[in-house]
Lab assay of single mutants.
Amino acid sequence: ATNIVGKVKWYNSTKNFGFIEQDNGGKDVFVHKSAVDAAGLHSLEEGQDVIFDLEEKQGKAYAVNLRIK
């Protein structure tokens, strides 16, 4: 899925991951530091509006192509 809109539920910059809540009511999506770095960001803030693509690997969904809304 592409261009999914959501809000950062939480992001832990020490542990380098967090979760994004989808605006469409879907399951929360894992986001890793690598996606944050690829977006040219240092971190994510709770409540921040983002747009992302959804990829699945080994049955787990995660956010890629992250951008600030």
Rank of each mutant, 00 (worst) to 15 (best):
I68R: 14
D49S: 15
V29M: 04
N24T: 12
G25M: 08
L66S: 00
A35R: 05
N12C: 06
V64W: 10
G25V: 08
S13K: 09
L44I: 08
K57E: 10
A39M: 10
Q58K: 12
W10V: 05
S13L: 09
Y62C: 04
K15A: 10
V5K: 15
K33Q: 10
N65K: 08
E56G: 11
I20H: 00
N24W: 13
K69N: 08
R67I: 10
E55M: 10
D28K: 04
F17H: 08
K57D: 10
A39D: 02
I68H: 14
K57F: 13
H32W: 03
A35C: 04
S43K: 10
K57N: 11
E46V: 14
A38R: 13
W10S: 05
V64T: 09
G18N: 01
G59E: 08
V31S: 01
Q22K: 09
H32L: 04
D37N: 13
W10N: 03
I4E: 06
T2P: 10
F19G: 01
L54R: 11
G25T: 14
D49C: 05
G25L: 10
L44H: 01
K69Q: 04
F52G: 01
A61C: 04
L41F: 15
R67W: 08
A39V: 06
V5L: 09
T2R: 06
E55G: 12
V29F: 06
D53W: 04
V50M: 09
K15W: 14
N65S: 07
Q22V: 14
K27L: 13
N65G: 06
W10C: 04
D53L: 03
N65H: 11
K57T: 07
G25A: 09
H42R: 09
E46S: 15
Y11D: 01
Y11P: 01
Q22F: 15
I4D: 02
N24P: 08
D37H: 15
R67C: 04
V5N: 11
F17A: 02
F17K: 02
V64R: 09
V29K: 02
V36P: 01
G59F: 10
N65P: 00
L66R: 00
G6Q: 01
